[in-house]
Structure formats: C-alpha cells, structure tokens
Nucleic acid binder design. Structure first.
Lengths: 194, 194
DNA sequence: GCATAAATTCAACGCATGATGAGTTACGCC
DNA sequence: GGCGTAACTCATCATGCGTTGAATTTATGC
C-alpha cells in the first residue's frame, strides 16, 4: 500500500535489488515461461524499474540464463543415488528426484526450465545439455546402461513432473511422494538393469 | 518470386484459403507454440492477408482451438488398443501411439498441443481435458485400473514424445519405433496390470 | 571533502502484435 | 441481370514489448 513515491538515484543502505530481481525472475519464468514473463512484469514484482534489470543483467536472455542456472550441483546429488545396493537404485533415484522437486525454493526454477524448454530454443538447449552432459555422461560412466534406456528413464520422470506440476493433472498432482515412489521405482529400476 | 500483386476482392473459382490457413496454423503452432506463432506469420504462410484469418476464425484463441482440435477420434482408436489379449495391451498401446506420432500430417498438431500445453492455459486445458475425459474415462471403464496408474502410463508416453519430437534428444530421437516398443511396452503393461 | 563509481528512475524509441472497419471483387440465387 | 452474401485486402489503432541514454542520488576510495 506504500504509495509509489519512488525517485531516481541510489538508495541509502545496502541494496537487495539484484537478488530481488533474480527471485522474481525465477518465479515469473516458472509460472509463465520465457516469452510471457516480461521484463516489465519481473521488474514490477521486484519493486524496481525495468531499466534496472538491464543495468544488472543486460538482455533478457542473459537474465533468463542467470535465473535458470541449474540450482543443483550434479556432484552432490549423484553420490546420493549411486551409493547403495544396485538393486535399489530405482527407488533411490525416484525418491531423490521427487525430493528436489518438493523443495518450494527449487520448484519454480525447475518448472521454468521445463516450460521454457518447449518454447524457446535457449530453454531447450539448457535442458538438453544438462541432462546429457551433466547427468547421463556421469551416470553412464558408472552404470553400464544403453543410452536409450537412460532416455526412457528420464522421459518417465519428465513426464511425471509435467503431469504433476505443469499440467497439474489429477490424481497425480495430489499423490504423495511415497505413492509415486512405489509406482515408478520398478520402472526406473528395469530401465537401469538392462 | 511471384510479385505480390494481390488486389482486394473475392477470387474467381473456389477457394482453399480457409483450409490453407488451418494447415499453416497447425504447422506454425507446432513449430513455435501458441505465442510465437503470430497471426501475421500464419497468414503469410497461407499466402493471405492477416485480416482474412480474423474473418474466418475470429480471435487468435479460436483459431488455435480450431487448428488444434484433436485430430484423432477416440472412438476409432480405442478399439484398436482394447481388442486383443489383455497381456499384450501394453505393446498394442505403445505401437498405436507411436504410429500416430509418425504420421507427418498429424505430428505438427500433436507437437503444437504439447508445446502450448506448457505455455498457455488454453493449451493446458485442451490436453488435460482430452486425456482425462476422452481417454481415461473410457479406458478406465473397460480396464479396472487405478487413476494414478493411468497417469503414470500417460506420463511415460508424454515424456517420450517430449524427448523424441520436442527436445529432439538423442538417442531417442533417432530410435526406431520397434526399439521403443520393446523398451516401453513392459512399463505400460505393468501400469495397466495393477 | 572531493572525485569517481554504483544504484536507481524517467522518458522515450522502434517494433511487432492482435484487432477493427471500410472498401472491393466475385459467387449464387431468384 | 440484379442483389445479397461471402471472400478478400488495405490502412490503421492501441498495446505491450525489449531496449537505450540521460539524469539523479548515494556510496566509496583517496
């Protein structure tokens, strides 16, 4: 309700504008996808002038890249999955995957990547490169599994998050993580056994 | 290279403009998604003035609905899947599904629906409603399978076409239908057995 | 304290878009 | 053969977009 009596010039104290913009960008890219998330809307959500976005990040595509940079480091997540009995790797993978998607701080970013992967070539490249070079290369080096099987496993998981978080289709959107693990783990396990 | 010496007024002979527009819309919506496929670009691809698009279809969203109307009638496809031994329903479903996606006349339309489902609420509703009311309701009436299992099966297939036709991720994009059937059919079968 | 740099807004440009309304030509019926 | 209707284009509008450059205020290094 504060009247928008903003005036030009630097604000006193240290500023959080840069981070505010990043956070707003993640939310809006996640909700609307690359094209429909306008710089003006992101700036408004961050309580900031659109020109400031350019001042910090340059063109829109750079903002997108900065906001969507993969929030998870493969080096920390892969050991969680690969360690443990090989016969239970499907369950560990599905459980870990769903746990990351449950984090409300990470999810908008994930959804944004999925949403934008179908629309902008930048988004598609981002997702494709991450899956192939970051994940598959490492997993394939440890487990000896054909690439097509890895694709099938990844496709199952991507399909699930599309249903659950993008389309919000019932009953999958409301199912518990445990239900999904029970349902999906055998599928993933089979792909990774071959 | 024909000089664009178009003049106003009705053309002699019978016109294919309406169908040309629909065809161009299917291609462009499929390639670019709802937002990036502009009415002007669709009109240009159809060799027609943008205003003619409005003349035939009204607002853009109506054009989209007309172009993306599901090209497959569930009444004709479901018997193909449901008839035959129950133990092979997974294979029949996957094979039929992939065969429809292989049709180069149908694919742009399918891709358009997937692409737009992640971006526009209209697209999401279109896909959601078709899957739930057209497919699931009918299938669930015949096979007695929990809704969550149907979701999981559909998610697997949607994930596959995202990898294969939207992201064009290798090796799935280049795999043969037969390879995919062998890989996916047991998964689908398991979901539909429960 | 003063100069430079950083943060911030304002005003504006140029562009593409979806949409509208009026005008023009052909078809089909009586 | 005249008339309503359908097909078709043109010019135009308002809007929202990404982007830019200048102006203003604060922080910081010397």
């Amino acid at each position: 309700m504060t009247a928008p009596a903003r005036r030009p010039g630097r604000r006193p104290g240290r500023s959080s504008s840069r981070d505010d913009i990043l956070a707003a960008a993640r939310v809006l890219f996640g909700e609307r996808g690359y094209d429909k998330a306008s710089i003006r809307a992101i700036a408004a959500a961050a309580g900031v002038d659109p020109a400031l976005v350019h001042h910090f990040f340059g063109a829109k595509e750079e903002l997108f890249a900065a906001a969507m940079e993969f929030p998870v480091d493969p080096e920390t997540i892969l050991p969680l999955i690969l360690a443990g009995p090989r016969a239970e790797i499907g369950e560990r993978l599905v459980r870990t995957f769903l746990r990351f998607w449950s984090d409300p701080r990470l999810r908008p970013q994930f959804v944004g990547i999925i949403r934008s992967a179908t629309t902008s070539e930048t988004g598609a490249t981002l997702l494709r490169d991450f899956i192939t070079s970051q994940l598959f290369a490492r997993v394939a080096a440890v487990l000896e599994v054909p690439g097509l099987n890895l694709n099938a496993a990844a496709a199952q998981l991507v399909g699930v998050v599309m249903f659950r978080y993008v389309l919000e289709m019932e009953p999958m959107a409301s199912a518990s993580d445990d239900e999904l693990v029970a349902l999906l783990a055998p599928t993933i396990q089979r792909y990774l056994d071959a």
